[in-house]
Design a binder for these strands. Structure first.
Lengths: 159, 159
DNA sequence: AAGATTCGTCACAACATAAGTTACATGATT
DNA sequence: AATCATGTAACTTATGTTGTGACGAATCTT
């Protein structure tokens, strides 16, 4: 199957929101990510439950950041999107009846656990503002490097 | 989808083969793993291509180890089964048009690459004989602890 | 009050990939 | 020749994310 892109997408959205004044509608976000508003609502629901964003209905409604980007880590977002299983490979059975398979599972479990622990430690050590810093290094005065998505210019509709 | 269990299964099979005299047929192995002979042939094909096992047709045929268990690492087997993608999560796009998404991808790629590197290093450091050691610690004289699978007694058909 | 906007959610289709299954050809042994 | 066992193609099944349509509820504008 295709890989789970919820974490990546939500990071993308949240950083945009950090650079955006006012609420963003699911439709705006969906266009940015080249997908469907329902998918956005579905995924953002997890962030709302954690209190990272708020949503408002009706005119002028949409999604708003409830925390600043330096108060959110990759780990927070990973957990908010449902803490999906990190690995695409794993044991054949959880409770094997064969002692050999048990030994195999034990070994694999150890190795994968160590890798996952490293991954989550790294996740915990990176805030969204640090990612945002990567993309606009010296903040060019002509405005290039500003948030622009695949359709170009969902943000800052300065036209 | 369920996790990819090819690595786990092949480890299981190979260790059994290391404790088994003569060739093992796909059907014997399939019964051990509670699956289908075709699945076995399909997966073992990768091991054969790497030269880790050989297969013989006809009467008395089947699968035979071409290397001893101390000459095979988890990494070897992982690669032989097609080196499937380790992670179930990943970026939404490979070539995003948005600089924010690019920054997100760069960060995630770094973190995942580090975790994968650790994983493969660990894989490379574990031989199958070490796993086999785990399951039969002092080799009890009554024969308990011998290779016995979910149906009990596919190995050593001493009856 | 009416209408438009926007989220919330259900329900179902689309898609990808490992796994399971059937069928048949090929080669080796008895 | 018969049997056994692999080799492989083709199809189905299973599982989870993603994609869509439909409709209700809440909120703002006129």
């Amino acid at each position: 199957m295709r890989q789970d892109s919820r974490l990546s997408r939500m990071l993308h959205v949240l950083i945009h929101m950090g650079h955006h004044d006012g609420a963003m509608t699911s439709e705006m976000i969906a266009k940015m990510l080249d997908t469907n508003p329902v998918v956005i609502r579905r995924t953002m629901a997890g962030l709302r439950e954690k209190g990272y964003v708020t949503s408002e209905k009706g005119h002028g409604g949409g999604w708003t950041l409830a925390r600043s980007l330096d108060e959110l880590t990759l780990l927070d977002i990973y957990r908010a999107v449902g803490e999906p299983s990190v690995f695409a490979v794993g044991p054949a059975y959880d409770m094997p009846g064969c002692v050999i398979e048990q030994a195999v599972n034990t070994t694999l479990k150890d190795v994968f656990a160590e890798a996952e622990q490293l991954l989550l430690q790294r996740f915990a050590g990176v805030t969204l503002v640090e990612i945002a810093r990567d993309f606009s290094p010296p903040a060019r005065p002509d405005g290039a490097g500003d948030a622009k998505c695949r359709d170009g210019g969902v943000d800052n509709p300065s036209s």
